[in-house]
Design a protein around this nucleic acid. Structure first.
Length: 253
DNA sequence: CCCTGATTCGC
DNA sequence: GCGAATCAGG
């Protein structure tokens, strides 16, 4: 694997978004092991892990960190959990993982501002709210989009468990089986950019919130194209975002 | 079984 | 440094 500056940036971005390692891997086109391995090497903040290898001395050689277990001696600090400025995730799993079994997981509308606050960066939300109030038509997926992704919160902000828009089995999440390597950043980016600018410059109304560029950089922005009804993404990005769970397995580059 | 993330260790 | 293999919890 060639860890270019870009792929690393993507990894970081996705990692920060709280995507699962496997998810990240799929999007970048590598295995979750590669993702985890790299993340580890980059000292990316560990995410709430379902396990903590310690009590199990059974492994090949638990030289890792002695065995905390029973002895009350040198406490093996949680070196794993609180790495670089990481918010040391509480045990409580406020983990960001959202779309689990179902599928999809897509970049979210959030961005961590310099203030460390998570900000929903687009208008759709407001629009949605209005709609909700006035019409109450709103489908489930609509208002839930507002959800903030907990994982990205830098402080003690108590995030509400993200309510991910259940993919909603509407007519549109079929996606043909196995789509190839889920995305070629370069190509897709420019493609979508032109789409969004070319089709319509709409200033109001829902817009695709697929993130483009790396969060934290000035180039970062959202697609902005007209999203599919009931979805936060435009057709193109929805195709990337919603992938059948089953399929993802083999279409991993 | 499936999922998940972390560590190990040969390359 | 990389990542498959492996471990391990849910």
């Amino acid at each position: 694997m060639e860890w270019t500056d870009e792929t690393i940036a993507r990894l970081k971005a996705l990692w920060q978004e709280g995507l699962s390692t496997a998810e990240i891997g799929r999007q970048i086109g590598i295995t979750k092991n590669a993702v985890v391995g790299k993340a580890h090497r980059l000292s990316l903040p560990a995410r709430p892990s379902p396990i903590r290898r310690q009590g199990a001395a059974k492994a090949s050689a638990a030289k890792t960190t002695s065995d905390a277990g029973t002895s009350e001696e040198g406490k093996v600090a949680p070196q794993r959990v609180a790495k670089a400025g990481a918010p040391a995730q509480p045990e409580v799993d406020a983990s960001p993982r959202i779309a689990k079994t179902t599928d999809i997981r897509a970049p979210d509308v959030v961005e961590t501002g310099s203030a460390g606050v998570v900000v929903v960066t687009d208008a759709p939300v407001m629009v949605v709210e209005k709609v909700a109030k006035t019409e109450s038509v709103v489908e489930a997926s609509s208002h839930t989009e507002v959800a903030v992704v907990p994982g990205t919160i830098a402080h003690e902000e108590k995030p509400a468990p993200a309510l991910r828009p259940k993919p909603v089995a509407t007519s549109d999440d079929q996606r043909s089986t196995k789509t190839a390597p889920v995305n070629k950043p370069a190509a897709s980016r420019s493609a979508f950019r032109s789409i969004s600018s070319g089709l319509e410059p709409r200033r109001r109304g829902p817009s695709c919130c697929w993130p483009l560029g790396d969060p934290g950089t000035p180039e970062f922005h959202f697609c902005g194209a007209t999203p599919l009804p009931g979805k936060p993404y435009c057709a193109e990005h929805a195709a990337l975002a919603y992938v059948k769970l089953r399929d993802r397995r083999d279409n991993v580059a």
